[in-house]
Amino acid sequence: MDNKASDSQVSPVSRPCASTLERVLRDKKFAVTAEIVPPRVPNLSVVGKKFELLREVADAINITDNASASVKICSLAVCAYLVQQGGEPVFQVTARDRNRLALQSDLIGAYALGVRNVFAVTGDYINMGDHPAGKPVYDMDSVHIIQMFDKIRHGYMDSGVELRSTSKTPLVQPNFFLGAAANPFGDPMPFHVLKVAKKRLAGADFIQTQCTFDVPRVREFMAMVVDKGFHERLHFLIGIMPVKSARPLEFMSTEVPGMRVPAEAIARMKGAQNAEEEGIQMAVETIQQVREIPGVSGIHLMTVSWEAVVPEVLKRAGLMPEQRGVVEIHAAAKSGIAS
């Protein structure tokens, strides 16, 4: 492994387009992804309702994988359900709960069920969640998962075993869109940019970031990314979170690792007459500022359980599908022509 992460010679993408989200980004349209946190109760009707709110406005929907290390319906099951409903899920996988065997079998299982976007992260540590006594796995880190998944795209398992049923059948090269996380708010920032470079070298296609309340910091981060030319090979979707009140902001600034919430944002939400309205307005303003940053190709809306706000935020930000020019891409996907 002598490749240097900062080298600009990373092989250009030669695969065909794998998903609607990839089509949107390759066509240089502004992408919008949303997020559904699966419920704990074993019933998918809630997911169905949330999906109905998002299906027309978002290009893809991330399904979190035991977010905050708390047990929920598994990401794979919800992804399969969304595919059945005609949706476009992004299958999130963490290294916390799976070793390399489980990571790979879940991936090929998801692919077999029609999932075409995958997003790999290392994952929150197990002591943040509801089973702090459990054994965290961390067989691999996020860079390794991406490397391994990219290898699967070439038809090989991590060990080098070929993806074919018998020696006479052709090599199978599953084609999917591979994402990774980045945190512009982490320290030291140059190291987080270097980690983006490593993920790019490992084979990532898109990046979704931690949610933004501190726009200057994202600007600084993206300036470093653009300076190195990483945005040419990676699509950056900046995380945005609309909040209903000041409470979640206070919680995030103290309890959630890797988040930077400026005091002004908390003060603004506290002083608001109509907190919900102010939260929407703040998200819209953040989106407008983020859109102007060079190298940004989309946003990722994390709403926790306030999915109903997504259409309103997008309407005000001028990011409805017809405004972004993605209606045809969505229609083509529905009629079954992904690429």
């Binding site: 290392t122 929150d124 943040m128 965290p136 996380a181 982490g186 320290d187 980690k195 690792p257 890797g258």
Partner: peptide, 26 residues
């Protein structure tokens, strides 16, 4: 590193502190 990362800090590394055990350095 509690997550045994071998390629750089996780997303929770802030102000030089570990996200899992805040009393430890990252």
């Amino acid at each position: 590193c509690p997550k045994q990362m071998r390629n750089g800090p996780c997303g929770g590394s802030m102000n030089g502190k570990c996200e899992v055990f805040p009393e430890r350095p990252c």
